[in-house]
């Protein structure tokens, strides 16, 4: 008897900024929505984030970045995910990211970016709508 798959989301902070208020609030909201959240802590390199995403076989990576390094770190993580065969793992994120950078990053393949003021309800709904997995076991991959 197969058990329904469950959303598995990696929540990560990459780079050197220590602002973890947002990532913790979102992690708790995803948990309360019934998802499995793997939080990797502060100050991670893109390589560490991607290795964790692959080993943990998550459906999506949520990256929080308030350091201004978004134009460096998001593309690097996208590249590494593809290199490691995880191109189908969704990358979304949040932080202080100017509008035109949001557009550029989305064109590169970042699935969604939440800027200050986004509600956790919106984020949970977005994950439910865009992560393909849970309708059937291991589906969509």
């Amino acid at each position: 008897m197969a058990q329904q798959g469950r959303y598995r989301i990696l929540m990560a902070k990459a780079g050197l900024d220590g602002h973890d208020r947002g990532v913790k609030v979102v992690s708790r909201a995803l948990r309360d929505a019934g998802m499995e959240v793997i939080y990797t802590g502060l100050h991670q390199t893109p390589e560490q984030v991607v290795r964790a995403a692959i080993d943990e076989d998550v459906d999506a990576v949520g990256l929080s970045l308030l350091s201004g390094a978004h134009m460096t770190i998001f593309p690097r993580i996208l590249d590494l995910l593809r290199q490691e065969g995880g191109g189908d793992i969704l990358l979304f994120g949040g932080g202080t990211i100017p509008e035109d950078d949001v557009l550029t990053l989305k064109q590169m393949g970042v699935a969604e970016l939440f800027t200050p003021g986004a509600s956790t309800v919106d984020i949970v709904d977005w994950v439910r709508a865009h992560v393909g997995r849970p309708t059937e076991a291991s589906a969509g991959r």
Partner: peptide
């Protein structure tokens, strides 16, 4: 809710850049 935050891995993250280690 059935959800969970799995946080044990945080303390082991430095090994995430080592291909000789697989953490699940």
């Amino acid at each position: 809710s059935g959800g969970a935050i799995l946080g044990d891995r945080i303390r082991m993250m430095r090994h995430s850049s080592d291909t000789g280690v697989f953490i699940r």
